[in-house]
């Protein structure tokens, strides 16, 4: 009897531990009180209003989007091309090549961040800023894109490409009319994942952004100075964005064409 109760209890405790803080953040973001504590005041959008009026937040949001969009675009193009090419080789070199591409995921982000700072500031003598952050983010998001696309390519029938050529299609027409429609969902899903990862990323951003903030470094700065409930609002916004993006991505990539 007791044994049967142990696991449900452990699971409940774990869930509460994992999800509790998240729920609190969301709940407090709608709290009208000045302090993040119980008892709660009334329900209000006060902190969201305050955020939208805050220039620093706007700048951080703009920075984050100006980083996440190019990151998603670049890493989707390079990651998808790499995965496609490795799959097209259809040899035993494909998988090792993909693994090498995935190495940045295994490296601590701190190491990547420091390496980028050294590269930009010391060697290339370029200023830090958005391009540096984008470089770092492409490095860590591209493997995810490649993995998603490679998974799709595993069930891709390459005979269709020869069939299309045989029926008069050029290489380009074959890609547009035969290849792309079949792997489009995986590519869009991969792009959304890359976008969400870039939006969330903190360590590389904080090292290489130079001046200014992204959403994550903005929150970090705020936490250090004031415990302003508006950080709950930012956290809730980011949570909603990443969760919905990831859900869409998961739905899309589960598509079997």
């Amino acid at each position: 009897m007791t044994r049967r109760l142990v696991w449900p209890l452990v699971m409940t405790a774990l869930s509460a531990f994992l999800l509790g803080p998240l729920i609190l953040v969301v709940v407090f973001s709608f709290n009208s009180n000045e302090l993040i504590s119980f008892p709660m005041g009334g329900l209000s959008l006060r902190w969201y209003h305050q955020l939208i009026g805050d220039d620093a937040f706007q700048a951080a949001l703009l920075n984050s989007l100006a980083i996440a969009l190019p990151t998603a675009f670049i890493s989707t193009v390079t990651g998808a091309l790499a995965a496609y090419t490795f799959a097209e080789w259809r040899t035993r070199f494909g998988l090792p090549a993909l693994s090498v591409l995935g190495l940045p995921v295994l490296l601590p982000p701190l190491v990547i961040a420091i390496a980028l700072v050294v590269l930009f500031a010391r060697w290339l003598d370029l200023p830090l800023g958005r391009p540096a952050v984008i470089c770092g983010h492409v490095l860590v998001t591209q493997p995810f894109v490649a993995a998603v696309v490679a998974a799709r390519m595993a069930s891709f029938d390459f005979t269709v490409l020869e069939a299309a050529r045989d029926l008069g299609a050029s290489r380009f027409q074959t890609f547009v009319k035969v290849t792309l429609p079949q792997i489009r969902a995986a590519i869009i899903g991969a792009a959304l994942i890359a976008f969400a990862l870039s939006l969330d990323e903190f360590i590389i951003a904080v090292f290489t952004i130079g001046g200014g903030n992204t959403l994550s470094t903005f929150v970090w700065g705020k936490i250090k100075t004031t415990l302003d409930p508006s950080i709950n609002a930012i956290a809730t916004i980011m949570l909603a964005m990443t969760v919905s993006l990831t859900l869409i991505a998961l739905r899309l990539t589960r598509y079997r064409g």
Binding site: D157, T159, V160, E162, A163, A164, D166, L167, G168, A169, Q173, K177, V178, P181, Q182, G257
Partner: peptide, 26 residues
Amino acid sequence: TNMVFQGYGLFPHMTVAENVGFGLTI
């Protein structure tokens, strides 16, 4: 020349008619 492939190589994202009409569409 046109070929009937061993694994058929049909376009999985198209209907029967779209598959058959592919060459003429191109």
